[in-house]
Design a binder for these strands. Structure first.
Length: 107
DNA sequence: GGCTTGACCACGC
DNA sequence: CGCGTGGCCAAGC
């Protein structure tokens, strides 16, 4: 049947649901997403996005330090530029998301 | 059932 | 600021 990514009962579906609800130009940390689900499984959130992230705005979910997933930083950067996500220059000269401004607070 | 693996997080040095 | 350590929790074997 066709309820692959529909209304969530599973942890996986709920993660995708939350990620899809993040507004453009804003971001949430893996931990924040887990917290919305009443869990602290930040790693499991990452695992879900690694597998099913292609269908949701995965670049809006980053680490607590503002760094996007390793290897995907360049792809994420293109999206940030397009969404005008507040960026900030890291210590090594790379771009990080400015959490102070871009962090989206859940209820 | 237990052990291992992870797109993590916080803290200490 | 880099690195190690312990803790969390879902999924797969």
């Amino acid at each position: 049947m066709a309820r692959d990514l529909m209304a969530g009962d599973d942890f996986t579906s709920q993660v995708l649901e939350v990620v899809a609800s993040i507004p453009s130009g804003r971001v949430m940390t893996y931990g924040d997403v887990a917290a919305v689900l009443g869990s602290r499984a930040s790693r499991a959130v990452g695992s879900v996005l690694r597998l099913y992230g292609s269908d949701v705005p995965w670049w809006r979910v980053i680490r607590s330090g503002g760094l996007p997933p390793v290897g995907k930083a360049d792809r994420a950067l293109e999206h940030y530029r397009a969404e005008s996500t507040p960026l900030r220059l890291g210590p090594d000269g790379s771009f990080l998301v400015d959490m102070r401004l871009a962090r989206h607070a859940p209820d």
